[in-house]
Design a protein around this nucleic acid. Structure first.
Lengths: 245, 245
DNA sequence: GACTCTGTTGGTCACCTATCCAATAGGATG
DNA sequence: CATCCTATTGGATAGGTGACCAACAGAGTC
């Protein structure tokens, strides 16, 4: 498993809880929480949310029974009680995280062009964590069929959402597109190309890189070169200045 | 804890040789391979080549001391003798594999456009394994600084090679480009976007996907839409029919 | 032939996983 | 109140990883 960075940290505060010693009746003052029994759905949701958080913060391969259990203050066995196969937890956590991203990415208001601007702008400047997650999942899909399926499904949902925007724009005559789906495919490939560099230590600063998604959108949607790039940059500075949500 | 280490898989033909018993003088006829002593450079190269092979076939995380040693018919300790940190072996194997890819990808003969056609065509149809490897490395770079550096270096070399082609094409007036480097960045981002789907179980068949790299090249290099796509397809069928190298 | 250098081995260690299972205890129900 | 269901735990098991080290043996050197 490629030693992978992370020099076996071992949470200091973690469950030092006797490694094997069966907790003699002596005053185990560390025994902070006695067992808490929750409703299955609640516990399940809790586990899933925590796993999704780990996926975003540390990567999908860091979703281990132990890691989730530690964060939740329960025993690893409990996690496997809800997710008998760890692999399924990983896939489910990915889906949850990506679903959340999608809600953030697609604005519900505004005309098609404005919604596209929001999409591109958020994609470029606010979703680094998700780019890393996509990269993570795309690679892991090589070994995890469940994840591969989940990816395909989420891609479909994303394309569907973007297709709506594009079709609306075509109806308005803002976009000049032969095949909306073709544009959709191209735009997401640009997004993925952009995301490929998410783990670069020193961010690549070249304008062609930074504005790649916007540029491809212009190309794919028949917009006048520069318009989208400018609107995205404008919205970005405006947001930075005004502190608008 | 952790009862004992090493569940001694014991290669069937391998060293059944008593576990711990210091090889009593009896004739061990199973002793298939006596130890072979090779020149350091040779052994090192052998290890590296095998690691690169594993990287391509099974993924970078499958490069483990044991995996490499097993394939080479030596003991794991020997691998760590040459690569004290397994992480460095992984990075070096990646570099070796990618260097090989580059030599294959860039044709040395032909005019700039022809060389671009070869690049795109090989990229699309012959390099799936390398797309997976890039994806693999890009993700792992998140945890392995050595790999992140190696990636950056290899990207630079690739861009350099492509930039030569583009500049030559500009000089010939075949390409219409403001900034060759910009085009270069865009083309590789398209390549990476294309490669993002390398692990998809069912290959995506849409034309916009299949020809994405060619289409982006046309866009980035100011070529007439369709020309490159057609030439790539032509070269592909020609090659398939004639069985040309 | 004897000696030295070092490539190579065999084995161990410490650590990390997931999975399985018996026993325990929380909380609702009768 | 007693009873039952099951969420939860504790621990054992089996497997995999990289790192380390003393001892062995091949090959060149004197």
């Amino acid at each position: 498993m490629v030693s992978s960075g992370e020099p076996r940290a071992a949470q200091p505060g973690g469950n030092g809880a006797a490694a094997g010693v069966p907790q003699s009746a002596s005053g185990g003052s560390e025994r902070v929480s006695s067992r808490v029994r929750k409703q299955p759905e609640e516990r399940r949701a809790e586990i899933l949310t925590e796993a999704a958080r780990i996926a975003l913060e540390e990567g999908l391969e860091r979703i281990t029974l132990r890691a989730v259990a530690d964060r939740l203050g329960v025993r690893p066995g409990l996690i496997s009680h809800y997710f008998p196969a760890a692999e399924d937890l990983v896939a489910a956590a990915f889906v949850l995280a990506i679903t959340g991203e999608r809600e953030h990415l697609f604005s519900v208001s505004g005309d098609p062009l404005e919604r596209l601007v929001v999409f591109v702008q958020r994609m470029q400047f606010e979703e680094e964590g998700f780019s890393r997650l996509w990269l993570n999942a795309r690679h892991l899909a090589r070994f995890t069929p469940a994840l591969a399926d989940a990816i395909e499904e989420q891609e479909g949902l994303d394309r569907g959402r973007l297709a709506e925007v594009i079709e609306a724009g075509c109806a308005d005559g803002v976009f000049t597109v032969e095949d909306p789906f073709e544009a959709c495919v191209r735009i997401f490939m640009a997004v993925d190309g952009f995301g490929s560099y998410a783990n670069d230590p020193a961010p690549f600063e070249h304008a062609a890189y930074v504005h790649f998604v916007a540029d491809v959108c212009e190309w794919a949607l028949g917009l006048t070169p520069g318009t989208l790039r400018e609107r995205v940059a404008h919205r970005y500075t405006q947001q930075a200045d005004g502190g608008i949500l």
